[in-house]
Structures are given as C-alpha cells and as structure tokens.
C-alpha cells in the first residue's frame, strides 16, 4: 500500500505547490524513485509548470453522468423531480415540459432509480481531464484539470485518484486551497497531511480552520511555516500552545520569491533553501517507517 502525503493550506498562495513539487523532488533523490505526484488543485493545476522535463504520456477526458429524459416514454409523474435534492429537474405535467439543468446536477443517480418507466438515461458530460506526465524522475505527475465553467471539482478529484498508480511506495497529493468539500476529497485517504501556512493574521486564521478540519477528519498532520519572518510570531505561539508538530520554517527572502516566480525546483534552489525541504523529507520518512511497522505488526 502506498503511503499518502497530502499538502494542504486553508489560505491560497502560502506555497503548497512549491512544497509539493519540492518534496517530490527530494523524496526521489533521498528515498525512492517509486513515487507519484497528484495535482488535486484541479481548478488551477500548476505543478507541471515546475518541471523542466514534461512529456505527455496519456490524457483522459473525465465525464459526469447527466440524466436525459425521453419525452416519448415519460409519463410526467414528477417523481424524478421530487427525488432530486439539487433542483436540477423541472417537470410541468400540463404542458408536458421536461428540463434537466446540468450545472445543478450532482450525478447522484437518484432520478434514474426513481423512474419506473425507464424514461431516464444518463449521458456523459465532460467535467475535465486527467493527464499523466513523465517528469523525468519518479513515476510522474498525474494532473486533474477542471473544464472551465464546470463546478464539479470534487468529483474530478475523486476520479483523478482512481487513476493513480497503486503500486507506488509514496503518493503526494497537492490539495486545493480552502476548507470545503474539495479539500476533504483531497486529504480523505492521506496518511499524513502537511499544512503549509504563512505567519500573517490571514495565514493563521485559515490555518486554524484547516487544523479544525484535520481534527474532525482524524488526520495526522504537521505544520510548515513558509515565508517566516514576514508577519508576526502568533502562528508559532499557536502551534506551540497546542503542541502541534512544527515541520519547519522556511524564511521569506525576495530571492526565494523569485525562485518560486520562475518555477524553480530542487537542484536549482540555493543549498540553504533545499535543506529545509530535505529536513521535512527526512521527518516524513521516519513516520513512514513507523507506519509500515504498524501495518506489518
């Protein structure tokens, strides 16, 4: 079974992507080549921008199932409309009017179950793509990319995870920002979650929201402070007071910001910056040993 590490943060722009791709890089260098990276930030997937080598291996369109009502068979009983919790189906019996709103549809299948006449069939409707990239090292990058205009990001993340390589030792999930259902979907099966934050009041507020989510989900997590020195020490106090695990502090420097801006990765980073990521890799590697031990005992 793969060991699954999710990289999350409530606030956007704290450095999730940069942490995810660098952890991938240093895991390959230090621990194993048998590792895969999943970009679960399907609204704005950016992991691929960080890799110099990227060859498209395969690409798959992901669809959701949207009901279609056959007006010749439909008896206009309105049961499907009653069963739809998302108000996606409108039926007006006197004028024999039927309509399905695909933006509201969650593809739960309740309408199809409800119809005794067999008047509903489901048709495929694209919500995005899953692309497999060879990135020169490890088992590569699997990227989910939401079709522009689709609101089905959570379903796409679920489908993206179905495409992952089950034979790898480690999977890294780069999660979207926020604390809603798409974040839950990204971290739900993770063995360990790295919460990336920045020491500003915004960063701290969103960190607390995300920590609450992790506690509710019962997830093991550690906190990585990025852009340290920019803001105040309230974040550090919060971590210490609650005895959460601090995975490291990456200092803010204009130079580092520049590396990120240009999508620099791993070996291209200055040694002092690389050391921070190596330390986190070492730490998680220890956790993996313990986890594996627990699994075999």
């Amino acid at each position: 079974m793969s060991y699954k590490i999710a990289i999350a943060s409530g606030k956007g722009g704290t450095g999730k992507t940069s942490v995810a791709v660098n952890l991938y890089h240093f895991f390959v260098q230090r621990v194993t080549n048998n590792i895969q990276l999943l970009d679960c930030d399907v609204e704005e997937p950016n992991d691929v921008l960080f890799f110099k080598t990227k060859e498209l291996v395969s690409e798959q369109v992901i669809n959701q199932k949207i009901p279609k009502i056959d007006e010749q068979v439909c008896v206009f009983c309105r049961k499907c409309s009653d069963w739809c919790e998302y108000n996606a189906i409108t039926i007006i019996p006197p004028v024999k009017f039927v309509q399905v709103n695909d933006v509201l549809c969650h593809s739960c299948g309740a309408c199809v179950e409800s119809c005794k006449e067999g008047a509903l069939i489901e048709v495929e409707h694209p919500i995005g793509k899953v692309t497999n990239f060879d990135i020169g090292a490890g088992k590569g990058l699997l990227e989910g990319k939401l079709r522009i205009g689709s609101a089905m990001q959570t379903m796409l993340i679920k489908e993206l995870k179905k495409c992952q390589d089950t034979e790898v030792d480690i999977v890294i999930y780069d999660a979207p920002p926020g604390t809603s259902c798409s974040v839950v979907e990204s971290v739900i099966d993770a063995d360990f979650v790295v919460l990336v934050t920045e020491p500003t009041p915004f960063g701290l507020n969103d960190l607390k929201l995300t920590v609450n989510l992790m506690l509710e989900l019962g997830k093991a997590f550690g906190i990585l402070i990025n852009k340290s020195g920019l803001g105040s020490d309230d974040t550090l106090k919060y971590i210490n007071n609650n005895q959460f695990e601090l995975l490291g502090e990456i200092p803010f420097a204009r130079d580092f910001a520049k590396y990120y801006a240009e999508g620099k990765l791993g070996d291209q980073l200055p040694k002092e910056l690389a050391l921070h990521f190596e330390k986190v890799v070492e730490n998680i590697n220890q956790k993996m040993f313990v986890h594996e031990g627990n699994h075999h005992s």
Partner: peptide
C-alpha cells in the same frame, strides 16, 4: 474566492 470552481462561478 480563489480558483474557478463553484464559489468563483
């Protein structure tokens, strides 16, 4: 919000 998903829409 960030992104282009349901909240952005």
């Amino acid at each position: 919000p960030p992104g282009i998903g349901c909240t952005a829409i």
